[in-house]
């Protein structure tokens, strides 16, 4: 009986199939069963729409109010919340846009959803300290061959065809007098996002650095990183690797160093 009522109530609120549930509601009072049910149905949709509005503000301004509302309603229908926390409700947005005919060709929108959702994940990923320049200076010369770099647990890298990170900045910065319009890059670019000292960061990275970051993420050793650059840089490979590594330290991208104590 309880299960039956909950099934009907859920269908009335989520799928708008009201008839069966309306028969369960006591009549009487200043408002009728239909209006009473409407309070719940309205609260359900508006709470989920509000959550998406909060999670995807730049996607919203990119596609405009009307299309964003259509996206929200379509999404709510297709991906009802399956997690007790609203925090995760928007997790299938990229997937939804890719698989829905009306949006699957709007690449800047799909990429923006990806970029914004990444920030959501970065924001409450596990916190870790940042390795300092002094710690790097303390690595004994002979230990560098065993060095493995641990990136922040929040670290994430994406590839974009459009100038998504730049558009995100320009839209997020309300005082930007020369807003950047979405445009396609001549070639795919890499963008990293991470958190250091509770602050979220992002930047685009060149291809050689992206390759190194991927190796570092897989806990490959520093010599492996240098080797990756050998073809492009020849003798200067280890210098380039050291230069990039130093940059990561300055940016708080590295949370731990692992090497053999000799």
């Amino acid at each position: 009986m309880l299960k039956d009522i909950q099934t009907k109530f859920k269908a009335a609120v989520m799928q708008d199939t009201k008839e069966a549930f309306l028969l369960e509601i006591e009549e009487g009072g200043k408002i009728g069963p239909e209006q009473r049910l409407h309070i719940y149905a309205h609260a359900y949709k508006s709470r989920l729409v509000d959550t998406l509005v909060e999670d995807f503000p730049v996607l919203h301004s990119l596609v405009g109010d009307d299309m964003f509302e259509d996206i929200c309603l379509g999404y709510i229908d297709k991906y009802p919340s399956s997690h007790p926390s609203l925090r995760y409700f928007g997790q299938h947005m990229v997937q939804f846009l890719k698989e829905t005919e009306a949006y699957s060709n709007i690449i800047p929108a799909i990429e923006m959803a990806d970029f914004e959702w990444n920030f959501n994940d970065v924001f409450d990923a596990p916190d870790a300290r940042s390795v300092s320049v002094e710690e790097v200076a303390k690595i004994p010369a002979q230990a560098w061959t065993t060095l493995r770099i641990h990136l922040q647990p929040s670290f994430v890298m994406s590839r974009y065809k459009w100038n998504t990170p730049a558009v995100w900045s320009t839209v997020s910065d309300k005082n930007d007098d020369h807003p950047i319009m979405p445009e396609e890059y001549p070639k795919i670019s890499n963008c990293i996002q991470w958190k250091s000292d509770l602050k979220c960061f992002f930047r685009t990275v060149p291809d050689d650095e992206a390759a190194l970051l991927n190796l570092a993420k897989d806990h490959k050793s520093f010599p492996d990183l240098c080797e990756q650059l050998l073809e492009e840089y020849g003798e200067a490979a280890s210098m380039r690797a050291a230069e990039l590594f130093k940059g990561w330290i300055m940016e708080g991208l590295v949370c731990d160093l692992e090497y053999l104590k000799v």
């Binding site: 909950q6 099934t7 859920k10 989520m14 709470r47 919340s81 399956s82």
Partner: peptide
């Protein structure tokens, strides 16, 4: 109240029928 059913969350405090079964 109940908030979830069939693996989905309403994110709302849904009322219960008040009887012995519940």
């Amino acid at each position: 109240c109940w908030t979830s059913h069939g693996g989905h969350n309403t994110h709302d405090l849904m009322p219960l029928p008040y009887n012995q079964e519940t």
